[in-house]
Design a protein around this nucleic acid. Sequence first.
DNA 1: TTGAAAGCGCTAACAA
DNA 2: TTGTTAGCGCTTTCAA
Lengths: 342, 342
Amino acid sequence: MADVAERAGVSTSTVSRTLRGLSTVSPEVRARVEQAARELDFAVSRHAASLVTGRTRNVAVLVPTLSSWFMGTALSGLARVLRAAGMELTVYVIPGMAERTAFFEHLPARRNADALLVFSFDLTDEETARLDDLAMPVVYVSQHVDGRPSVYVDDVAGALHGTRHLLNLGHRRIAYVRTEGACGFSFSSQERLVGYRQALAEAGLPLDDDLVVATPAGDKRGAAEAVGRLLGLREPPTAVFAEQDEVAVAVIWTLRATRIEVPGQMSVVGFDDQPVAQWFDLTTVAQSPSRIGQEAGELALSLIDDPGAERERHLVLPTHVIPRTTTAPPPAPRAEPQLPPD
Amino acid sequence: MADVAERAGVSTSTVSRTLRGLSTVSPEVRARVEQAARELDFAVSRHAASLVTGRTRNVAVLVPTLSSWFMGTALSGLARVLRAAGMELTVYVIPGMAERTAFFEHLPARRNADALLVFSFDLTDEETARLDDLAMPVVYVSQHVDGRPSVYVDDVAGALHGTRHLLNLGHRRIAYVRTEGACGFSFSSQERLVGYRQALAEAGLPLDDDLVVATPAGDKRGAAEAVGRLLGLREPPTAVFAEQDEVAVAVIWTLRATRIEVPGQMSVVGFDDQPVAQWFDLTTVAQSPSRIGQEAGELALSLIDDPGAERERHLVLPTHVIPRTTTAPPPAPRAEPQLPPD
DNA sequence: TTGAAAGCGCTAACAA
DNA sequence: TTGTTAGCGCTTTCAA
């Protein structure tokens, strides 16, 4: 910066003021400084700047992975609003327990970011408490933490509507396939199951635990086992509500391999509306991670500007059912022996 | 840090030495300092540290998007090696031309990162030159830039082997479906087409431009048009090599909707081995973005430590064909009128 | 093995 | 409107 100042024949303060766009610089001087900065390819050191301002112009995110549709899409949405605000994005990827422990022990984001967005973790109270004394706004995404700003999709309503869609088609035996082992995502998982149960209760149907099975996400083998359990029931389901599209697709795969027609003999509903849902023409509950990322980013920015505001703001985003071709009315019941035809 | 020093009854220099793991600290003092740091939840300000060391312990990446399988997986691999090295990861998402121009104009990474990884862009010479005087190592990923460190998959060989697989099955009319409009990814795109042509040339087959069609990635409609053009040829293909799995899936979708059997009447090969390839049981050329990310990260770290080394290192990663159920020998040719049977 | 002091590159308060 | 000066929180000589 001293170089720029010298070349423009001004002091470093003036260079600083010019480069930050402060209005207290005369046009001629501004022009000279900008010219000099361009010629010298000068870029302000954010480090030096934040040392004195205390603001880093950097937002940190904590994510379990980068390689999922949800995370990729959400972070793209977030990145857009941060870029527009001139903020940078630092990503902490915490795939397992060891890394998680290390992160919470050292909290490396401390003093190195202006805000932290925590995605899709099911935090312990202790971990939440650690984040509380981080001295920066923390926004919880895809989870709700009481008394802290959170952005999430209405999983309960989504599952409720998806299940209702099946009920409205006439299904009475509806299974729920949840994911297991997807530690960190268990939050949405719980909520969706609640919505499913709520729909059944509404319809006056009993909750049959045999109809709730689990499988690791995206695993053909596990899905086959889960479907196998359902098909082996005394009274098997005529429809399946899957916690995620990937699970729905695995279920459909298994059913088709067994020559069980979808939706002829079994209807399937997913949750997400990932690209794969289109390829399978899957009826699904759509959510918009990109919107989630965007809203979370905007909330974080507003908290940075005014740490008092919206401290307890919960933003609940909507979902909507997209009917496609994997749902239909249940097959006609088999002739029931005890009732003579006509 | 002053607080920690006071609490431990030492100078800030000693705290600094302790926290950086320097060996010139006596065990008792080290214990006291670590204790104090823990009690005060102290984390070093990277900003202040880098101001004096000149190293930021931060690696920047430039990516066109975060919401693709390739990027998500590659960045996960990269994040792993960076975390192990105690480096942080800053992501610049540059989805369009406007953002790209802005990035290259200001080069915000300058002085704010120790290295830059540029993913999947087809850079102009001018842009490359800009990056050259960034005063930090720049690693090019998924592209080769002469004389600069690059990490990429052997797209030519991949497409060559994929096409050969079709040739070996007996196919002679093989179409190539490329993506268009996916600006920034055009590099791999070109290379794969080269591999395809090479395979045909090897087999002594003519290059028929009618067999090369384009479609926007992941677009059902566009794929239908492209497939339509192929099916309308005087001599339609019996197999399709698709530049990416997503395109292959769209092609299969269209074919099946038209009651053209895959692989009975048309074989299809993809490139990537994304999860969707499994769901479609797609024969494909597999690459490992996670490995790419990892290697790129390691290369960047080594360049940071020793800017002289490996300055021109090109790391070319292998691919392999995964045969699944979308490829088979071509259908028996129709009876040819001019030859009497037997 | 430890401490004192200088200074990294910037911004902010104050003076001019 | 501009310049001078102090100091942000560290690391790094250099001296002890």
